[in-house]
Design a protein around this nucleic acid. Structure first.
Lengths: 242, 242
DNA sequence: CGAGCTCTTGATGTGGCTCAAGAATCGTGG
DNA sequence: CCACGATTCTTGAGCCACATCAAGAGCTCG
């Protein structure tokens, strides 16, 4: 319900590319990676922050690749409890490891630009190009491995360990080159639902890490990692070990 | 360290097929499924309950398919906390979604019979048979989906909901045709480490479900599901809803 | 038939949740 | 550019689901 449907009158607004509820569609740019077959059938689309891209249960008609921005893969329990399976960053695909229907809702955490493929075109490309399906086997395998790491985190790690692990993982994925500063596009609620915690606990953990001088927080969405090795220790459970 | 290395002197023992620490090696039987290419390069091996088949961190030299029995995929935290990523049942493969080294230790929960392939032979088969890599893409995709379900369970479900979900899933996978009786090959400790709980909590939950007349337990490893729909309700969180 | 597991049950403790209330921050309209 | 309402974030107090600690009861298997 948080997500509005397509805007009827695309009103002029600040950022031209993200002005409307409806995605901006542009011709696809140039081929960059191995799966060149794909790039011929893709369409570039943009969505504003908060937009729902695909919805759990809907027929899986498209496959997407993230070009810019960040998204969350969400699952809901019938009573409204929410879980975030993963965050999607530039280079990630989504919607391709599905059966007939999507298993997750995917929403834009920040303004995003995506490349969209029709499921049919995508599957045909897999069929044609023998290397492509091996390529995606690799992709899914890596996704599986990351998901298994997350299982261990949710099953056996304390709140502090989860937070430390999360910050390190995010730092690896989106470290702005400028030193150890890390930009978190998602809000506390997203982090909480990703780590199996509550907003309050996430907030308290960040405060704790700040008062331990392990991180600093110029603002709520910016994290400066001061002691990476301390985080590393915390993430695996050895509190004050050398 | 719990696992002994290969026994030097295979001593005579009760069950001929599982007598020794070293696996019994037999010529491979007949081809049964789609990936017929594989069946030519496989070797059938058997291990007794408790045996470690592959160890996390070791070079990934073999791929296995479960022919009979049950196994657990285990991960450890440096301080000894244990997590079980999944249980492996007949038909499941393991060791193929790996990089250079295994990411999990795999141990036999019961006596098992496996088909073993060399990694090289396996990869070659994937290379040769264009259908094979699509086949395994499907396998990994299903594994990913199951793992994501488990994430939701660990991230957002209560202990009782986890237990109900687990019993239902096991019932689906290994229902002996004889009614709703379910044979749990793993012990309480395995279940606890799979569900992110403790042995005591698992035991109490089973007691609770028994006193609610939702299940019955002829013995500790046998579960009789009396009210499947009650379990179904519990597994998603709607306590006493119609 | 006895040693050592595994499982169950009880008593107590606690990490993280819930409830509650401010404080920042963001976004929007004037 | 500023004001102000709406979010989002932080912080505190109290509680509860599940963990921990402890002990006894069954099984298994030698």
């Amino acid at each position: 319900m948080a997500a509005l449907a397509l805007a009827k009158h695309p009103a002029p607004a600040r950022t031209p590319a993200f002005a409307t509820g409806a995605p901006q569609v542009r011709p696809v740019p140039a081929a960059t990676d191995a799966s060149a077959t794909l790039d011929r059938v893709g369409t570039t689309v943009s969505y504003i922050r908060g937009k729902t891209i695909i919805e759990e249960g809907n027929p899986a008609e498209h496959v997407y690749k993230v070009a810019a921005g960040a998204l969350r893969k969400v699952r809901l329990l019938p009573d409204g409890r929410r879980h975030i399976t993963s965050f999607l960053m530039p280079g990630d695909f989504f919607g391709f490891a599905e059966g007939a229907c999507y298993t997750h809702t995917v929403e834009a955490v920040a303004d995003v630009t995506l490349v969209r493929y029709s499921r049919r075109g995508f599957d045909a490309a897999l069929e044609q190009d023998p290397r492509a399906s091996r390529h995606f086997l690799g992709l899914v395998t890596r996704a599986l491995s990351a998901t298994q790491d997350h299982l261990l985190l949710l099953g056996r790690k304390s709140a502090l360990e989860r937070m430390a692990t999360f910050l390190l993982a995010m730092a690896d994925r989106r470290a702005s080159k400028a030193g150890a500063e890390l930009d978190l596009p998602m809000n506390r609620s997203d982090v909480a639902d990703y780590l199996g915690l509550t907003i309050e606990t996430v907030s308290r953990l960040i405060t704790r890490l700040r008062s331990l001088k392990i991180i600093d927080t110029p603002d709520a969405h910016r994290i400066l990692i001061l002691k990476r090795d301390a985080l590393q220790d915390l993430s695996a459970g050895q509190a004050g070990a050398a």
